[in-house]
Computed example of a mutant assay.
Amino acid sequence: MDIARQAAAVIGRVREKKPLIHHLTNYVTVNDCANIALAIGASPVMADDPAEVEEMVSHAGALVLNIGTLNTRTIESMLIAGKKAAALGKPVVFDPVGVGATTLRTHTAQRIIQEVRPSVIRGNMSEIKILAGMNAGIRGVDSTADEQGGEAIARELSRRLGCVIAITGKTDVIAQGDKRCLIHNGHLMLTGITGSGCMTTSLVGCCCGAVDDLFAAAVAGVAVMGIAGEIAQKTLKTGEEQGTFRMRLFDAISTMQPDTLIHYGKIN
């Protein structure tokens, strides 16, 4: 079975299994991440107090960690929840938002990688290059790095950290050891709404909570967002812009089926 069909099958499993996905994510996009999880068929929970995260993650199918809006309390919660999830063998999906922008952000990302050992890391090119020890451009939490060498960087970092690496951009790159996949879906309008990256990470988490094949899960989660962006843009009429696009994006994911991914997916 080729990777596109494997990824399509993951979407079916998410809708059948309806996994509980525990998020410790940033307050700018937390509502969008919860709703995108519901749209794909999963069940989100956003508990982030240190006193309950171990118990909550014990019930979850996967854990999503996102450092978009750091504070001391949530850093502690992420490490507690991440270690518990890892001990229980549950997938941990890490989004190193803006790593490299500040010392705290970079140090926190390093701690999560070293102490939790995430199953999947999803980031933009700047973020992944910084994790790989390379100089990269970043402005706030936005990438300014070009995509040159992304495939080799993803493969090398995947081998080094022993996890799936997903780089999202104009061309998405998913790597796990010697395996790699390129996804050519998406639309520029996705860059004009807050949280498209965070929501992609949530989709990957939903997929990881439904299947054992985390490489196929990462491909599925990333591809769903790109395909939904294309579908949403095509529905827009004159005068409909980012606000309507966001609404249509959720609609496209809510109606996403395995056959949709096979039909629209530009995956190789």
Rank of each mutant, 00 (worst) to 15 (best):
84 K>E: 13
143 S>D: 06
233 Q>N: 05
39 A>S: 14
242 Q>V: 14
71 N>G: 10
179 K>S: 13
31 N>S: 11
165 I>G: 06
129 K>S: 11
72 T>D: 15
231 I>F: 06
221 G>N: 08
88 L>T: 10
261 L>R: 00
118 P>K: 01
115 E>R: 11
245 F>T: 03
73 R>F: 11
204 V>G: 10
245 F>K: 01
153 I>M: 12
113 I>N: 05
219 V>I: 12
153 I>F: 05
257 Q>Y: 06
131 L>I: 07
236 L>T: 05
149 G>I: 09
103 T>V: 14
81 A>V: 03
7 A>Q: 02
173 V>H: 10
218 A>K: 11
194 T>V: 15
253 I>Q: 02
48 D>Q: 09
179 K>V: 07
182 L>V: 07
171 T>C: 08
242 Q>E: 14
166 A>I: 04
124 N>D: 11
182 L>F: 09
201 T>Q: 00
195 G>M: 07
66 N>L: 11
111 R>H: 09
242 Q>C: 12
47 A>P: 05
38 L>I: 13
106 T>P: 03
147 E>H: 05
110 Q>P: 06
67 I>W: 04
153 I>E: 01
114 Q>V: 06
244 T>M: 07
183 I>K: 04
46 M>H: 02
144 T>A: 06
87 A>D: 08
186 G>K: 05
31 N>L: 12
180 R>K: 13
187 H>P: 02
60 A>R: 08
197 G>R: 05
